[in-house]
Simulated assay, not measured.
Amino acid sequence: MNLHRKLEIGSVFLFLIGLIFLVKKTFPLFAASFSGEPWMSSVYLILSLGIGYIIADFLSGMVHFLCDNFGDENTAYFGPAFIQPFRMHHVDPTDITKHDFFETNGNTCLVVLPVMGIYYFVFDSISVWISFSFLFSITSIVFTNQFHKWAHLENPPGWIRILQTSGMILPKKMHSMHHTPPFSSYYCITCGWLNPLFEFIKFFPRLKTSIEAALIVNKER
């Protein structure tokens, strides 16, 4: 077992332990709020979860976009673990379906662990609803690659098809649009909610033009 494999496995378990710990720390505050104002607390909870999911979808799109368009597999730190898998994914889109749970989710767990550590130290200064939004967001980020993998399964189980069809996770049909040449659209891969909006406003093409212009200016200095 090589070092990266050990990191994948260790990161998954550390994430799950950390998540249980943080939920246990947050839940009493939620329970107190819910007992006092159940209806309003229900609304806040739904809003918190929705915002957290949208944030996760946005971040998945940004990482996907950057890894597809900038740097290469030799880029320091991020190249082998993130850029190379995204680039190879376009060569063989179904390869991701052969990855086990740890290989699929290990890298994202590794990335969010420091964020969870920072959250622990600022927890007491933020509201319970921001806490729930944060926890749901990082959990969604961690399992984004799992949703991505399921979007490439030829015949996913029925319960996964229900989640995909309902739009709760990345739909197969929507993600297939990203794998249509020139592979420059529909980057968001958590649930894909932001993809239609970003396509309408040409978010990623404009962002790419801006980044490339900034890189040229910096290179000329």
Rank of each mutant, 00 (worst) to 15 (best):
P28D: 04
G117V: 12
K172H: 15
W150N: 09
F132Q: 02
L45M: 14
H4Y: 10
G71V: 09
L153G: 03
V43C: 11
K202A: 06
V115P: 01
E73Y: 09
M116Y: 08
S35C: 11
I118S: 07
E220C: 02
E212W: 03
S185Q: 13
Q164N: 08
L135M: 15
N145D: 08
F147C: 09
S48N: 04
S125E: 04
T108K: 05
F147N: 12
I160N: 04
F102E: 03
G106D: 02
R206C: 07
Y186G: 00
Q84L: 15
L45C: 09
E8K: 11
L66G: 07
L135R: 07
F86T: 13
L7C: 00
S60G: 12
S210G: 11
F86G: 01
V111W: 08
V217A: 08
K173S: 14
F21Q: 07
F134C: 02
K172W: 04
F132H: 02
K173M: 10
C67Q: 06
G50R: 07
M62H: 10
I141N: 00
R206W: 10
G71P: 04
S140A: 15
I96Y: 04
N107C: 02
Y119W: 12
R5E: 14
Y44F: 13
P181G: 03
I141C: 00
S48E: 08
V63H: 07
G10T: 08
V217R: 14
K208R: 15
G167K: 10
W159G: 00
P85N: 07
T108E: 13
P181W: 14
M88L: 15
K208W: 06
S42Q: 03
A214W: 09
M174I: 07
L163W: 13
M1N: 08
V112F: 09
K202C: 02
M62E: 10
R87K: 15
I9F: 06
G167F: 10
G52V: 07
G71H: 05
W129T: 09
P93A: 03
M174V: 07
S176K: 06
V63C: 07
N107T: 09
K208Y: 05
T144E: 09
Q164G: 14
F134H: 05
I20W: 11
V142A: 04
E8G: 00
S33G: 14
L14K: 10
C188D: 15
L7Q: 09
W129V: 14
T139D: 00
N74Y: 05
F121H: 08
S140W: 02
T94N: 13
V122H: 01
G50C: 12
K98L: 06
N2I: 09
